[in-house]
Design a protein around this nucleic acid. Structure first.
Lengths: 351, 351
DNA sequence: CCTCATTTTGTTATCGCTATCATCAGACAA
DNA sequence: TTGTCTGATGATAGCGATAACAAAATGAGG
């Protein structure tokens, strides 16, 4: 029986996979040299490297993950522990790190933990022999987890922790700057009474954002009215309560800056319930640019965190750390990435 | 220098350190025999099999997947193509298939495509030598993609496509049953004028859901009022328009069943804008149980699809298909998984 | 022109498992 | 008994990649 399939796709099906030897043959070098080129190896003459790379491209070669793992004696395994599936956040996060993980052939082990079970879940990950750990918010701010990580001397990266954490690498945007920029933007629209809804007090980023808001007002010569700052917990519900409090103030703010998108969405809802039009009668801004921001209507003006870039960066830091490890303390790198202000439909000049 | 690194790692008990040879030695047979026992081998005397199995149990042996794949030929690569990152959906989806992929050491290649770029993206995946393809909604309903898959004779699984698709396996809940169950539930609360917001017409599930709604009403002896069925597109915005239309009807429905959570959330918002209390004056239900359902307030009564179980099942189907493949047509399996009705805060008995 | 230090490249030996084929023990017909 | 056949087992050879070491090429300095 012929495999009536023979065309381009014939190369699939187990056997036709391009191997490292074929690449080597085509490039006129030994397989080992190809291997070195693939793995960013040093000590390869650039002429050789180029010819190998050309061969790789022409044959559309990609290494066999199983063989590599077998030969290399178990690849790198990195744990990703998440707790609060702020789904929108998580999915973007996953996409970023997954992609990078696949590119570098590291095993990403994603584990969820319920509130209170952080330590148990982390232990579980540790026991399954991981070489590094990624901590997205809100876990990145858990002191217990940080302790555990330090004690086990395992490389870890906190993402969006708001502030650096001792003994742990981190990837952040500058929350202070971002909040200040957003507040400046609102000020530029003419608003003077700007309400602020705070984030969860146990997240360091919350404080940074409030400070940014305060700084912008202060720099603009505006007194900070404590009544305009309402506590929140990053949840829709807490945002609803906070927004109601602000909107029921005798002298209502003309703009409200919520510390995340969920609370901003709640603010929009609260305003609508009071027949206050957004943005004509009330400007609303969020933070994070999660999917929710464009899901609701009107779409939220917000600050974009490049979440998938951040998780990708986290993975890179870990890999570098693991690769360069001498058995001593994990290194502690802090990376700051850029945020972007995204004006959409919930902001308008003061009438 | 001592290898401080190695020792740390050594202390974390690596599982699967036991090899097939050790088992063979302990059982007094050759590795090959052990292999046969493991792989449901025929032609092994039952006495031999038992002794091998005992050895396996005692040593707590588990085979090295990488080695197995290498020896058995070709690692499996499976593509996961997604387009509309309904973030909440995607993240749950990813978690399910990722987990299963890791467990079986298959490479999951996640690729995103923009609207209109489905074919190009799929081709790209195909060209990168994948052995199977997973299609979450809404791509699972793309006829062009289905054609491509059939033409290339590559095993594929559509998840939540609503209906079976010729030549492609699928994993679904019974959308018809689910919608009927939800409608029955609303009826049981005493409601008689029940509005329905349809999903996107190009998604087969939309039709099934409407049919379920109609069936429930019919069975209850209630005439289906076409005015109570409003078209939608699964987006918040379309839901808002549909809800407004329903709420502005001369004889307003006392309940609205939206075909997904986004549109249900929009319905709640529209109601609030009209000062209609949910659920006291209006019962609202969604579908899918995405994160949005519990994000907003009041929390949505909805139908839960076990998304991560479904994506996990999809991967299993693919793996089975690939493993049993003889070079002929991919098989076409349809799996139906259970849904769950989740009553939360947006439904109440008719006053 | 030769030596020594330093790249750069090639060789060999696995990694843990399974395909393939050879081998061997027993069953059974002649 | 002898030969043939069948099913159970073992020996050998990779799968595709990398580690560790060996060899060759390069370059600097005397």
């Amino acid at each position: 029986m012929t495999n009536g399939n023979g065309s381009v796709r014939g190369s699939r099906r187990g056997r036709g996979e391009v191997t490292i030897s074929e690449v080597a043959a085509k490039a006129g070098v030994s397989p080992m040299t190809v291997s070195r080129v693939i793995n960013g190896g040093k000590n390869v003459r650039s002429a050789t490297r180029e010819s190998v790379e050309r061969a790789i491209a022409e044959l559309d070669y990609s290494p066999n993950i199983a063989a590599r793992r077998l030969a290399a004696g178990g690849g790198v395994r990195i744990g990703l522990l998440y707790s609060n599936p702020s789904a929108a956040y998580l999915s973007e996060f996953l996409v970023g790190s997954l992609d990078e993980a696949r590119r570098n052939d590291v095993q990403l082990i994603v584990e969820k933990c319920d509130a209170g079970g952080e330590i148990a879940a982390a232990r579980h990950l540790l026991d399954s022999r991981i070489d590094g750990l990624i901590l997205p918010p809100p876990l990145c701010n858990s002191p217990e987890l940080a302790d555990l990580v330090r004690r086990e001397k395992i490389p870890a990266v906190a993402v969006a922790s708001g502030l650096p954490i001792k003994g742990i690498s981190s990837v952040n945007i500058d929350d202070f700057d971002a909040a200040r920029a957003m507040t400046d933007y609102i000020l530029s629209l003419g608003h003077r009474r700007i309400g602020f809804i705070e984030g969860s007090p146990d997240q360091a980023a919350s404080g940074r954002r409030r400070e940014g808001y305060v700084a912008a007002l202060t720099e603009a010569g505006i007194d900070v009215d404590p009544a305009l700052i309402a506590p929140g917990l990053f949840t829709y519900r807490s945002g609803l309560a906070a927004a109601e409090r602000l909107l029921d103030l005798p002298e209502r703010p003309t703009a409200i800056f919520a510390s995340n998108d969920d609370m901003a969405a709640a603010t929009v809802a609260a305003a609508h319930r009071r027949a206050i039009d957004v943005p004509r009668q009330l400007t609303v801004c969020g933070f994070d640019d999660t999917a929710l921001a464009t899901t609701i209507w009107p779409e939220l003006t917000t600050v974009r965190q490049p979440i998938s870039d951040m998780s990708c960066a986290a993975l890179q830091i870990l890999m570098a750390d693991i690769a360069s490890r001498n058995g001593d303390e994990p290194l502690e790198r802090c990376e700051i990435v850029d945020f972007t202000l995204i004006p959409r439909e919930t902001t308008a000049p003061l009438q």
